[in-house]
Amino acid sequence: MALLEVKNLEKDFKEVKAVDDISFKVQKGEIFGLLGPNGAGKSTTISIISTLLKPTKGDIKYKGESIVKNSKLIQPKLGVVPQEIALYPELSGYENLKFWGHAYNIRGKKLKKRIEDVSEIIGVKERLKDKISKYSGGMKRRINIGAALLHEPELLIMDEPTVGIDPQSRNHILETVNKLNEKGTTVIYTSHYMEEVEAICTRINIMDKGKIIASGTKDELIEIINGNKKINLKFDKVSQSLIKDLESIEYISKLDVSENEIIISSNNGENIFKDITEVVTASDSSLISIDINKPNLEAVFLHLTGRALRD
């Protein structure tokens, strides 16, 4: 049985259909990614899973029971990291964590221990006494995550947790997600940063305009565009014989030739690089540079929608 099952979920905001008949399952122990541009319906979907919104249609089952009918089933087991810094800036990190611990009825020694553990995990132990308003963006994000971890949730929902922070803090957060997952926490991770989703998610839903437009593992998604690779070669000059030899390679689907540059499109990743190297070495043209663009989720999204993820 899936830990979470979303069935035919719809959500209307007056004229706008924010979520349009989506279904998916989240298995226990996985990091499930929701990828899509702003306005794709990710936040609305997780707001419904968080019991903050009621769906217009459809159902969500947690361990087989409807949380739309009974939100209390999931609330104690759920940790939510909102996109915004949902903290009290004028209280210290410690006071914030203490308050959110109380929100889940953790008190006394147990709470003290949990605050210690969580601050260790998120790497803010040294700054706990400082007011949140004195923290950097990355530090605030870490406390924002920590507040959702105090009650050791079974399912952790993270809504764009790395928006607007420095690379160091971003890496720390991604590492934290991986560590939590290793300890058994199931994670739903939403982002419009394709690199993050690619790096940590075991399965991914790509959403656009309220719908799921593709779903699967990273490799399964890339397979949608047939493993299309682009290899960019630059020469001192491009000879006709070189073009002819390259065209003879079996897996090359397209060659774009300019004055001293050739862009090769290929749908096979196994031997193509070896074959190209042999042809180029044997030619009378001198190779200046080689650039291989591997297909990624950005390309998949572009392929499916005709738009870039960050558009």
Binding site: S50, L52, S71, K72, Q75, P82, E84, A86, W100, A103
Partner: peptide, 13 residues
């Protein structure tokens, strides 16, 4: 506006 209200509601308050 700070989403702390929603966070409290999500926690079951």
């Amino acid at each position: 506006e700070n989403i702390t209200y929603q966070r409290m509601v999500i926690s079951g308050t």
